[in-house]
Design a protein around this nucleic acid. Structure first.
Lengths: 210, 210
DNA sequence: GCAAATTTTTACCGAATGGACAAACGTTAG
DNA sequence: CTAACGTTTGTCCATTCGGTAAAAATTTGC
């Protein structure tokens, strides 16, 4: 991305306050989107004045950009791990579970990403067409190999990956709807376990009775 | 919702221009969200001046509300249709296909809805907890019946419905990402058919080889 | 064809927003 | 202790935003 030529050399306070701001901004951006969020909102959530915040990040966009860069690093980690070693079905089950855990533990990151994509990915399109596509194509080949070897049913590996993303991230991005439909009876822990069990069944066995 | 006590009695021009505005607003709102969209943007997209637009809709929120009401009517239609008659697996396959067709034919509506949910559903929460929950609970019972009868594998009907929503709407909401990853080789028609074939396989057979 | 009703334009307003700037205040190294 | 540096605050500004008011232009019903 940006060349790390200029070393940032930050003070203790700068490091702490920047973290505070990013934490607050993640809250705000992930629920209101970039344009829907104001610097004032973020500043208030971070417990400081707007000019103070602007001392640490010169522009609103800088905050969003920093957040986005961090997000992408961690976001693709599960897919990178996803490897050829071990039993294919176990590997897939593990990937689904890790993605679901991320939706549970980092819902704001998921929503930040969803917002960006919904708006046409204006800031990360190059990354989607480059790094992401490359990674997905690579993993799709791994899956294709499994299919050729008869280890998993032959079908489209790209759409398989999409469907894993869709089903797991749904629990972060559409959390509001999921909660509203399920009602308050079942706490978030129970919801997570139910979802994990269901998705495992869906991806491994499908719905046709055996 | 709001009592239709006051008959709207609109002129021809009002009917036409309101449609024009709603059409333009759907474009804008679905990609920028409510707060991220401006009246000016919508007015320009509709080919008229801001004050002129405000002659037809007094407030920005009125446009969004009208759009939302229409959306919800058509959005749940496939789930309403989804009935007890006929073979369960056929019924499910039909529902998935209809939802996927909606994602293909009405992606803006899907994104409008996604935006609303992402932001915590501030304007439609009552509908989610009322009408939607009721409908889903009802259909979940139908599915449960099928499971009891051994017509489909026993699993969680609520999460089954979520997973159908997630996988199908993904092709509208994350279209940008899907296109970026698949590349330009395969046109939208091909993408749709691939997705339909894959989802049918996933939901009916799962991935374990037989 | 014309009066009444409807539609469009022009000009404007107050509030919110992203951001600049310098003065005041704290912290820290020597 | 103090000078240098880092941090915070108060004030201000230009722009954009949602929305209003009234005049001008157009359409419609008779």
């Amino acid at each position: 991305m940006t060349s790390p030529a200029a070393a940032p050399k930050r003070t203790r306070i700068q490091r702490e306050k920047r973290e505070l701001i990013l934490e607050a901004a993640l809250d705000i951006f992930s629920t209101h989107g970039f344009r829907g969020s104001t610097i004032d909102q973020i500043a208030e959530a971070a417990g400081m004045s707007k000019p103070n915040l602007l001392y640490y990040f010169r522009r609103k966009e800088d905050i969003h950009e920093t957040l986005m860069q961090r997000l992408l690093d961690t976001w693709l980690a599960p897919l990178r791990e996803f490897d050829n070693v071990g039993d294919p079905l176990t590997e897939l089950r593990g990937y689904i579970r890790r993605k679901l855990e991320m939706a549970r533990d980092y819902p704001r990151e998921s929503r930040l990403f969803a917002n960006e994509i919904l708006q046409g990915a204006p800031r990360i399109m190059p990354m989607l067409e480059g790094e992401l596509k490359q990674l997905v194509d690579e993993k799709a080949q791994v899956i294709k190999g499994w299919m050729r070897d008869g280890k998993i049913a032959p079908t489209d590996p790209w759409h398989l990956i999409f469907s894993i993303w869709a089903t797991t991230q749904h629990y972060a991005d559409f959390d509001t709807q999921v909660r509203a439909v399920l009602g308050p009876d079942r706490g978030s822990e129970g919801r997570f376990e139910d979802a994990a069990r269901f998705l495992e069944h869906l991806f491994l066995e499908g719905l046709r009775p055996r």
